[in-house]
Design a protein around this nucleic acid. Structure first.
Lengths: 121, 121
DNA sequence: GTTGACCTTCACACCGACGTCAGGCTTTAG
DNA sequence: CTAAAGCCTGACGTCGGTGTGAAGGTCAAC
């Protein structure tokens, strides 16, 4: 499929898909005329990129991780052992962030309570 | 106190303090020579700014909220009723974000498990 | 054969919350 | 008095996009 279809199927703009390629995250084929050609597997790749971005990872790190994720993700590619430590560190970062958000949430709740006391007064 | 001391006491950079002023979040006095002069209350203000930023609010919104937070935060200033709805919306956004991070976390855990299976193999 | 949709590269601008550096003034310590 | 530390303004860089536009190539339908 070409870039427009992949954009439609993933919900990501063509601009962003070209950006991912520029960052080395996608490597589509090309037609004789220079059009980018994507396969079905790229739909899944884009989905993974979005997850990892949402996790707060940078495109450079994602560029290292992606080649390790093969098939259905049930195992990693060879030579990717080191990745586990990195991912565990990222997971800790996410845990920290969730904890922070919970703190912030309760602080916000405090302010809201203050506001309700005002309305009541 | 001057900017360096406030930075040391709050743990944010002087650059950041100047940025907050630029955005209207802090309004320090000035010495004759043009140095910024902060009071004790600014320490608390910076703490509040950090919480609200961590909550994902923008500086523009924070600029509206800050004047409503008076004294120890046990109540809001008059004329700030509308704020409650806004804050509740922000709290929902935080809930959504926490849920998203939990999804991402479990996705990451899946990859890590895949990596461990590889190491075991 | 021409219209129109789709694609190409290059490139500039914007966002938010700062980091960083340059060039110059003020205050403080020795 | 001088040197260092601290402060000032102004301006450019960062990251992960996103929008926009220019100037053109390609392809299918009519």
């Amino acid at each position: 499929m070409r870039i427009g279809e992949l954009a439609a199927r993933t919900g990501v703009s063509t601009r962003t898909l070209r950006y991912y390629e520029e960052k080395g995250l996608l490597r589509p084929g090309r037609t004789a005329a220079g059009y980018r050609v994507y396969g079905e597997e790229h739909v899944e790749t884009v989905r993974r990129i979005r997850i990892l971005l949402a996790a707060g990872l940078g495109t450079d790190v994602i560029g290292e991780i992606l080649p390790c994720m093969v098939d259905e993700g049930e195992y990693l590619a060879p030579g990717c052992d080191d990745l586990v430590a990195l991912l565990e560190a990222e997971r800790r970062r996410i845990d920290d962030r969730i904890a922070e958000l919970r703190d912030v949430r309760s602080a916000l709740t405090g302010i809201i309570r203050a506001g309700k006391r005002l309305s009541a007064a």
